[in-house]
């Protein structure tokens, strides 16, 4: 395997990891606020805060990993994205900063406040929307290269059907993934009241998710036909994704195997995300950067791969320890510890 393939695989795995853990977090924020507004917060908010408290920082690190890794493995891509994403990137930073710090303020600091909860819920939907811009512009057509440098065509971005369908897909996926996970967690905690509520959320948000996926496909065929054709060549991967989706919905509806249901959700997104990623290649940024031209020199590539493997040896045991302490410790989940 070449460094560029290892590099992009590592980065894509991290982005996938971020997609899952951040979706759980972002969606939970929205549900916590929604439950408060509809006066059902006594049912689920304790459950949500018990899960989120020990893991919120970890979520953030997945994201940092992705963009630091991108700078390392594909410095040219970092240049192009850095030049163009100043505004959406800065907005995402501000939202992440507000979300993270106000979460800490509320959770470790003073009493509950509606303002905090609102910010927490709103940022949960706005962050995925602003981050999805990076994937949108990677399809090409939103960047102009002149003698002075590379610029984002903001007008084109804001009027493109493709760009909006991605935003819509990002938001509904967040809510769907999060609700599926919370169903599992509530089931695990034996919390029937919470389970009934979050199960309803999961089923409710499933259909918009699949509709948004379809509209994104259609918009893609209009926006970047080459990529669309490459996606069609991988039709079976997306077919698998739909299969996992149906399995997940069945399992949640049937109401017994919530753990398996969530695993099916994870596979649904794994297949879709990697199908999208694989068909995106050879371009990292259409049509400016390809995988093989944008990759870092061999010495740095090797160093990063070694660092990555060494890091995993350190992190995986630590993560297992954390999960055993909080996620899979039944007493903790039930609130006895």
């Amino acid at each position: 395997m070449t460094y560029e393939l290892i590099g992009i695989t590592v980065l894509w795995v991290f982005l996938y990891g971020y997609l899952i853990v951040a979706s759980i977090d972002f969606g939970a924020g929205f549900f916590a606020y929604y439950a408060k507004v509809t006066k059902r917060d006594h049912l689920i908010n304790r459950l949500i805060s018990r899960y989120l408290s020990p893991v919120w920082e970890v979520t953030n690190v997945f994201f940092v990993f992705f963009f630091v890794g991108l700078v390392g493995f594909f410095p040219d891509a970092a240049y192009y994205y850095g030049q163009t994403l100043l505004v959406p990137g800065s907005i995402a930073i501000v939202l992440i900063a507000i979300r993270g710090s106000f979460y800490a303020f509320e959770n470790y600091g003073s009493k509950q406040s509606n303002v905090y909860l609102f910010l927490y819920g709103a940022t949960g939907l706005l962050i995925p929307a602003s981050l999805s811009t990076a994937l949108t512009i990677s399809e090409g057509g939103f960047i102009k290269e002149t003698a002075e440098g590379v610029h984002l065509l903001t007008g084109e971005l804001l009027t493109s059907p493709y760009s909006w369908s991605v935003v819509f897909l990002a938001i509904v996926s967040v809510l769907y993934i999060s609700a599926a996970f919370l169903s599992f967690y509530a089931h695990r905690a034996d919390d029937q009241g919470a389970l009934n509520l979050v199960k309803k959320y999961a089923l409710f948000w499933s259909s918009p998710t699949i509709i948004a996926s379809l509209t994104t496909f259609i918009a893609m065929s209009q926006h970047n036909e080459d990529h669309f054709n490459r996606m069609m060549e991988l039709w079976w991967v997306f077919g698998l994704s739909v299969g996992f989706f149906m399995l997940a919905i069945f399992l949640i509806y049937q109401g017994k195997y919530y753990g398996w249901a969530f695993i099916a959700v994870m596979f649904q997104f794994f297949t879709a995300f990697f199908g999208y990623g694989a068909s995106h290649l050879p371009y990292l940024l259409y049509p400016y950067i390809t995988l093989s031209e944008g990759v870092v020199n061999d010495a740095m590539g090797l160093a990063l791969v070694i660092a990555f493997i060494a890091g995993l040896f350190l992190l995986i045991p630590s993560l297992i320890l954390l999960m055993r302490m909080f996620l899979f410790d039944a007493d903790y989940v039930k609130g006895k510890k």
Binding site: F67, V68, G69, V71, G72, F74, P75, D76, A78, Y79, Y80, Y81, G82, Q83, L85, L86, G89, S90, V296, N297, M300, A303, L304, A307, F308, G311
Partner: peptide, 22 residues
């Protein structure tokens, strides 16, 4: 990366190891 893209392009090539390790 957003404010110093040209610098980060060089940094990515030469000094990204400690950034990654951090």
């Amino acid at each position: 990366s957003l404010l110093w893209p040209s610098f980060m392009q060089v940094a990515g090539n030469v000094i990204s190891l400690p950034l990654f390790l951090e």
